[in-house]
């Protein structure tokens, strides 16, 4: 795995993020939209880790562990938030399905004035 530079990882992250963004706009099934959001979150996670591995730290911070751990910490918290988000989001989808017996995203217009 030697010989990669930061741009390789960032390119993979940006492609995945763009695909996720397209999916959120294009698809109508809320569960698939949800999965695309997860895809975008993971693209961002990859970017965080790549930056954490490749970017140099300043000389003042070089002896402190947290200077190069912050990227990984962000990923930990993104994972925690994603887990909570999925539990609540899928709960909402199930509640909507129980209420309306369908989950087409275009039919969810109850809040329209």
């Amino acid at each position: 795995m030697t010989g990669n530079n930061l741009a390789d990882y960032l390119t993979l992250g940006l492609i995945m993020f763009s695909i996720g963004a397209v999916g959120v706009i294009v698809r109508r099934n809320p569960i698939v939209i949800f999965m695309c959001i997860e895809l975008m979150l993971n693209a961002v996670n990859l970017t965080f880790l790549a930056f954490a591995r490749f970017t140099p730290t300043t000389a003042a911070l070089a002896d402190r562990a947290e200077s190069f751990m912050s990227g990984q910490m962000m990923v930990v918290f993104v994972m925690a938030v994603a887990a909570a988000e999925v539990a609540v989001g899928l709960g909402i989808i199930m509640a909507i399905y129980r209420l309306r017996n369908e989950i087409d995203i275009d039919e969810m217009n109850l809040l329209k004035g």
Partner: peptide, 12 residues
């Protein structure tokens, strides 16, 4: 493009 050397230690 030019960040091609890992800066963080391997055990990070």
């Amino acid at each position: 493009q030019y960040f091609d050397k890992p800066q963080a230690p391997d055990s990070f």
